[in-house]
Structures are given as C-alpha cells and as structure tokens.
Amino acid sequence: MLELTRVTAGYDRREPVVREVSLSLAPGESLGLLGPSGCGKSTLARVAALLHRPYAGTVVLDGEPVRGWRHRAPRAQRTAVGVVFQQPRLSADPRLTLRELIAQPLRATGRRAEVADRVAALAPAVGLTPELLERRPHEVSDGQLQRACLARALVLRPRWLICDEMTAMLDASTTAALVAVVESYRRESGAGLLAVGHDRVLLERWCDRTVGWQECSAPGAPQEVMGPGGQSS
C-alpha cells in the first residue's frame, strides 16, 4: 500500500498548499487525482514520491512509515517510487544523452551491468530509436524527451509509479502511446499508479478510479475520506 494520511505540505509553513489530504493506493491499482491548476496536487505527488517533506501527516509505503524525505529517505524506499514530471525539459539533465538519462538510476544504484540490457528493452517499448538515444535533450522534441523520462522512471522497476501531469505538454498520439506504456508495465509488474492531472476525460479513461481534489482534502475536518481499502467515499 501507498498511504498518505492527513498530509499538510507546502512552501510556507503559515500557508500550506496541501491541507490534511489523505489518499491510499493499493498495489496494482490505478488512481487518478483530478484537480485544477495550482491546487497543490503536484506538491502532494512530490510528497508521495518522497521528494518533498510535509509539515504534518504520515506517509506509509509498503507498510513502512516514511521517516525521511529526499536524501534522508533510504535508497530502497526512494527507488520504490518512480516519478514522471510534467515538463520533460526541466526534468532532464541537459548534459546527458537520452541513453545516459535512462541509465542514470541504474548507475546511481550501482547496477551498471544491467544498463545495456535494460536500455535495449525499454527504448523500443517507449518508442525511442537507437539514433534518438544518442541525442541530447535539446536535440529532441518534448514528446521524445518525455518518452525517455518515462523509461527512466521505469528502469528500476518501481512498485509505485507517480505521473504528475505526464501528458499535459504532449499531443494526443504521444499521450496515448505513453499511457499504453504505463498500462503494459502495470499489467506485467503489478505496480500501483497515481496519475495526477486536470484532464477528467483522460484520467477517467485511464484509471480504475478517479478522485477529485475536494474529495480527498478536508481542511479542518479530521475525518479520513479515503478508506484503507481504496474505496472512494
């Protein structure tokens, strides 16, 4: 399970963006989180990906309570969650080729030996040709770069995948292709998916269930909106 309970987070303690939000996600389940822009859903996604320390609330990942965020989280916990961000330009180190970009998590975790095999398996799956793999981010389109970013998020075979507005910058066919890649990974690995976005049509087609931001955030009200079984109330 990936459980967020009454999480309050933000960038200014006096005015948190996310107030007492609770969410829970079962293995193999796909959950769409709908919200207007600026509501704090990306911040919540960063909390769930262990990239942003909340002011209050708890995150439990596979039964283990999360005690530290960013570098303070144990590597095994951090790498259990794969993340795809909204803007591929900003989430790719401009000095790396797409091949290095995809291989980066393997190198960082000391699994250099698997690089060739994993990249060779993932690149065709996300639709990148060998020629594209040798290019740098500024030499490819947003869609191609986002394909590489998705491959990077999948390269360590995470048990959880968080897609934060993954397709907001992309055209319909690339969106369909990336969603298909995520879905086939989920079928094959049984990973849980949290898809954050503002496109109701897309999320309702894509995910097992979709919740609105209002339903899971309960400012001032200390009740748990999402049951542990993942049933939306």
């Binding site: 990906a49 960013r70 969650v81 993340v83 803007q87 989430s91 998590p105 970013c149 390269v155 360590l156």
Partner: peptide
C-alpha cells in the same frame, strides 16, 4: 530543478548529485 528531483528519486546519493549534476 526537477532533474535533481529525478536523480534523487532514481536513488542518487548526495555526492553523486553534486559531482554528476
């Protein structure tokens, strides 16, 4: 920048983030 977030999420240590990115 998000690419530092991505590196951390990919398991990069503090030292690796500084030296590589």
């Amino acid at each position: 920048r998000p690419f530092i977030d991505a590196a951390i999420s990919g398991g990069a240590s503090r030292g690796r983030v500084v030296v590589r990115h």
